[in-house]
């Protein structure tokens, strides 16, 4: 099997996608991802010279404009209904500007 990714690469990706991982999980993920990437090899072996990509099954997507009408939307209460933490009608997160403030 080709080593496409090292454990260090996997740690970097985990940080980027904001998924915390233990060292054991990093090791297993490295094995899994290398195996999956190996299985993708056919895509790299195709002669695709001059072939245009298709990014979407509906090729000719055009921008659609709607009538400029007032419509209902979520109330603040509904928008906050699933928020794990809220305060004063806002989503509440841990302080991002150093220590202090309400938690």
């Amino acid at each position: 099997m080709t080593q496409h990714l090292t454990e260090s690469d996997v740690r970097g990706i985990a940080e980027y996608v904001r998924i915390g991982m233990t060292e054991d999980e990093v090791a297993q993920m490295t094995v899994d991802l290398n195996a999956i990437i190996d299985s993708l090899a056919p895509i790299t072996e195709y002669d695709l010279e001059g072939v245009e990509p298709t990014f979407h099954p509906i090729g000719a997507l055009t921008n659609v404009m709607c009538e400029d009408l007032e419509r209902g939307s979520f109330t603040q209460e509904v928008a906050l209904l699933n928020a794990p933490k809220q305060q004063d009608g806002c989503f509440l997160i841990p302080s991002v500007l150093g220590d202090g403030g309400d938690r």
Binding site: E15, R18, I19, G20, N82, A83, P84, K85, F91, I93, P94, S95, V96, R103
Partner: peptide, 18 residues
């Protein structure tokens, strides 16, 4: 933050995300 599982007890937003 807006919905979904939130792991409790984190003082740092990055740690809460992860």
């Amino acid at each position: 933050v807006r919905y979904g599982y939130c792991d409790p007890g984190h003082a740092d937003l990055g740690a809460q995300y992860e």
